[in-house]
Amino acid sequence: MEQVLFWLMAVVAVVSALTTISSRRPVHSALAFLVTLLSLAVLFLLLSAQFVAVIQIIIYAGAILVLFLFVIMLLNAQSGEGPQIKLPSQRPLAIALALLLFGGLSYLLLSSPLGAARPLPAGMGTVQAVGGILFNHFLLPFEVASVLLLVGVIGAVVLTVKEDEQPK
């Protein structure tokens, strides 16, 4: 059962991710991205990471994707046609290099022996366990991440405040 679910979700995730980057309509891309996120959430659940799965749905599928759709609709971006590609030779080169990287990494991953699965610690993946680790072991990274988010907010203000509103 788990195996079947894994393969099903893996295929769905890859196909919808490919749709996200190949679709010409931004709305279709956004919806395909939603499918990717949901299938990833199921994969997290299979790894008994319940909290991450729920967060994935609430934050990514819920909040961030809605934001994407808002932006697409506000900007009225009908089609994703970009400007003319100036270097047409880049596309085959990029595909070839990406395939090379994919091949190389797959070879390395497949040829490395993985140790036997270790038993999960009790309460793994619950909100309590994640919270406990986050505020004890990973306290410093947690705080640094908050500084990072603050910088993001400052950046958004710096780059978007209208010129005449800002004090000279």
């Binding site: 990274p141 640094v144 910088v151 400052i154 950046g155 780059l159």
Partner: peptide
């Protein structure tokens, strides 16, 4: 002392640099 901190440091270094590069918005 941890790869996670290297990553967070990298981001905390870089994101302000991205913003500062665009500081002359005109």
């Amino acid at each position: 002392a941890d790869l996670l901190m290297v990553f967070l440091g990298l981001e905390t270094l870089s994101i302000p640099l991205y913003i500062l590069s665009g500081f002359a918005r005109g």
